[in-house]
């Protein structure tokens, strides 16, 4: 009984949230460009869970916040971000939380009769079944296809209580050959990619490396020389350390040009 009412309550809450976000989308679209410039220039404020971040009805509670009577509270440690109507907290830390549709980089750590166990650094186990691979696979020797320790670019197909199901049936999903793997905090992934890929494209352009960024914070870098890869790695590490400074893309570009001259 109790559970049911709880479920209903959650559903209701979700629905209202949906409505709210819709409303906000409409509201914010108009002023998006103007708004973004403004936010970039504001000094960033870090908030703690339970902290009151707004009072009254001026704002709607966004991600990682909750409303309690008149107040809106942070429910996660991170950076406060306000738009005209919405207030939310951008996480600064935390492990990777898988979402359906995420492209991630994983590492094969076990092989069963019908697929592969893949470590994607998520809180539950991930499995790639034979049926989610394309092309011919010798069923008697799955290791021929993906072996222990192999790194693959894969996609999260579904998340169930038993675990995560992966797929390889899409363009770009593949086994990684050559290059190196680095790992960063997954909360930094949007910064590494940048607006419409601007950041990662800058690094690719300046270093000549191929780079694949998994949503789980695992990144693959391959260049014509190890030195190029290390330079790209250095740039990525620099971004993870100072993710919220102004004009970061240009600064990274300058850094890469300077380093190349050395």
């Amino acid at each position: 009984m109790e559970k049911e009412t709880k479920k209903k309550k959650i559903k209701k809450e979700k629905e209202t949230k949906k409505e709210i976000t819709k409303e906000i989308k409409r509201e914010t679209k108009k002023k998006e460009t103007k708004e973004e410039v403004k936010i970039e220039k504001k000094k960033r404020q870090i908030v703690a869970p339970g902290e009151v971040i707004a009072t009254g009805t001026q704002f709607l509670p966004g991600e990682n916040t909750r409303r309690e009577d008149k107040d809106i509270l942070a429910t996660r440690f991170g950076l406060l971000e306000k738009s005209e109507k919405l207030i939310k907290v951008i996480p600064l830390s935390g492990v990777y939380i898988p979402r359906v549709g995420n492209t991630v980089i994983g590492q094969v750590f076990d092989i069963s009769f019908n697929g592969w166990m893949v470590n994607i650094l998520a809180p539950s186990s991930a499995f790639l079944t034979l049926a989610e691979c394309s092309g011919y696979i010798n069923k008697n020797d799955l290791a021929e296809h993906y072996n222990f320790g192999d790194n693959i670019v894969t996609k999260i197909k579904s998340i169930k209580s038993k675990g995560i199901d992966l797929t390889m049936k899409e363009r770009g999903l593949r086994k990684l050959e050559g290059g190196m793997i680095i790992s960063i905090n997954p909360t930094r992934v949007p910064r590494i990619i940048g607006r419409a890929g601007s950041m990662v494209n800058t690094i690719k352009g300046e270093t000549g490396c191929s780079i694949t960024v998994g949503q789980n914070g695992i990144i693959w870098i391959k260049g014509t020389s190890v030195e190029d890869e290390l330079l790209a790695k250095k740039a990525i590490e620099l971004i993870t350390k100072k993710p919220f400074i102004e004009g970061l893309t240009n600064k990274i570009k300058e850094f890469l040009i300077k380093e190349k001259k050395k």
Binding site: Q107, F109, N119, G149, D150, N151, G178, M180, I182, V226
Partner: peptide, 15 residues
């Protein structure tokens, strides 16, 4: 995650 075989290979090449 255990160090990737790809990265290990790069470490060895550098050394």
């Amino acid at each position: 995650m255990e160090t990737s075989n790809l990265t290990k290979k790069r470490i060895k090449e550098l050394i």
